[in-house]
Amino acid sequence: MKLHRILAMFWRHIYLYRHSITRLVEIFYWPLLDLLVWGFVSLYISRLSGEGKSTPNFLGLFLGALILWDILFRSQQGISVSFLEEVWARNFLNLFVSPLTIGEYLVSLMLVAVFKVVVVFLISALLAWLLYSFNLFILGIYILPFMLNLIILGWAIGIITTGLILRFGQQAEVLAWGIAFLFQPISAVFYPVSVLPKFLQSLARIIPASYVFEGMRAVIFGRGFPTGLLVRAFSLNLVYLSLALFFFFLMFRQVRARGLLARMGE
């Protein structure tokens, strides 16, 4: 073993971090998110036991939340990873020199996202029932508006991510894997919004997913269908999807003017 060769390889990786902010941020990103999510989950559980309330159906709360969260994540990935597939395959240019319009391309990605979501959802629901006897369909017909809202939010996040990858290239690829999780702590997936500190509660109010997960808990606790929460989620989602599309078209125009579109495809 030669120290100079080991150090050469050590520096080869350290140089990467000097030139890539995204790689540097990623080192802290996941531990911080884990700390936030699991910290708030612990807080929620200890508050419940401290107040002497009867233990809620944790299996339903956590498994239901996990499966619904995956809908948002798969929907976002259905857009951004499908886009990356074209970049990795160097097929991007072939598509954009065909009569395919940007609008048609985005709609096709949204369809891919829905397909992935449905497949993953059905498999997860089946496994939850087989392994844990948890029937996700206790949410009944309410599950459809929950899913729809999460799919639309996933589309919006995916389209913004794709716009950023288009503009900043490979450096921004990491967003495709991690950006959805940025919303997890303030989406109150595994705990109610009231567990969050005040400033994070304000942020949660502008995240449509937080209304969906609050709604899911309301149904599980037998508090009825949360129409108001879902209307708020849906309204916010429409705003975010419109903004995401505007952002994507803006990025596309910039990238085209700078000649970066061709570079991305080769």
Partner: peptide, 10 residues
């Protein structure tokens, strides 16, 4: 259009 520098889905 055809270019040597462009590929297709692997």
């Amino acid at each position: 259009f055809s270019s040597t520098y462009v590929a297709m889905p692997y």
